[in-house]
Simulated assay, not measured.
Amino acid sequence: MVDGTAQSHVDLTDPTHLEFEYVRRLGHVIDAAGPPTAPLRVLHLGGGAWTLPRYVAATRPGSGQRIVELDGALAELVAARLPADGVGLQVSIGDARAELERLPDASVDVLVVDVYAGARIPAHLTCVAFVRAAARVLAPGGLYAANLADGARLEFARAQVATARAVLPELAVIAAPAVLDGRRFGNLVLVAGREPLPLAALIRAAAGDPFPARVEHGRAVHRFAAGAPVVTDRTARPSPVPPPGFFGRPDRRAP
């Protein structure tokens, strides 16, 4: 927890145990990103307690993984209290966008964006320039996966899809039906790439999850973003403030 906001859940005895529903959906993206067990080059913007990197290391041994985390004290705490010895993680302390812009072209197979300052995504990580920087480092067939949070009219999430679409032509959104329909605040996972996405695998995994989700793609995802603006550095805003009690809800966690 950070300032009362749930940040990460780690099972040191079973790194394949993903507790939070949105982390499970990011895990589905990792699973679909290549042949089973094949190593991947994964960049994690936002490390939390290194839950997903541990999952990748367990399910895809030999993967090259880099974590970018702004909070150096948090990284030290995780290393001391929740060690991941022998996993081969490279941890960088710095701003996610600044570190991203230093990376070589086509050097990443999967880019996971899960950066929150407390309970909100920082504004400078929501604009089209950030997505262009992400697209530059993606290898052919690479996947961009971002954890978003929104509710009601989904104005923030719709603008994020429109912004990604301005750079990466293939898109999908994974979320609980109640979130996609605007009936409650929640997490949405945006998946994007230059080449066709592994939709069949994502749909199958999302439907069979303990917290079933819907995968919007094709015309549905274009309708979802219809009329939404492309976000620029000038117009960028942080993600919405979650409602009180949001992070204490039991349906944010898997049984």
Rank of each mutant, 00 (worst) to 15 (best):
70 L>K: 00
71 D>C: 01
71 D>M: 01
72 G>A: 01
74 L>D: 00
75 A>D: 02
76 E>Q: 09
78 V>G: 00
79 A>E: 14
80 A>V: 04
83 P>W: 04
85 D>C: 03
87 V>M: 07
88 G>C: 06
90 Q>V: 15
93 I>E: 01
96 A>M: 02
97 R>A: 07
97 R>N: 03
100 L>K: 04
102 R>C: 08
102 R>V: 09
102 R>E: 11
104 P>W: 04
104 P>I: 11
109 D>A: 13
110 V>C: 04
111 L>T: 10
112 V>I: 15
114 D>P: 12
115 V>I: 15
116 Y>W: 10
122 P>N: 10
126 T>L: 04
127 C>K: 02
129 A>G: 13
134 A>C: 15
134 A>V: 13
135 A>R: 08
136 R>V: 12
137 V>I: 14
138 L>S: 13
139 A>N: 14
140 P>W: 14
140 P>C: 15
141 G>Y: 13
143 L>R: 12
146 A>D: 08
146 A>F: 02
146 A>Y: 00
148 L>C: 14
148 L>H: 12
151 G>A: 13
157 A>H: 04
161 V>F: 04
163 T>D: 02
165 R>H: 14
166 A>Q: 05
167 V>T: 03
167 V>K: 00
170 E>D: 10
171 L>D: 02
175 A>V: 07
176 A>N: 09
176 A>H: 11
176 A>C: 08
176 A>E: 15
178 A>D: 09
178 A>V: 12
181 D>H: 11
182 G>V: 12
183 R>L: 14
185 F>Q: 04
187 N>H: 06
187 N>V: 07
188 L>E: 07
191 V>R: 01
192 A>P: 04
196 P>S: 10
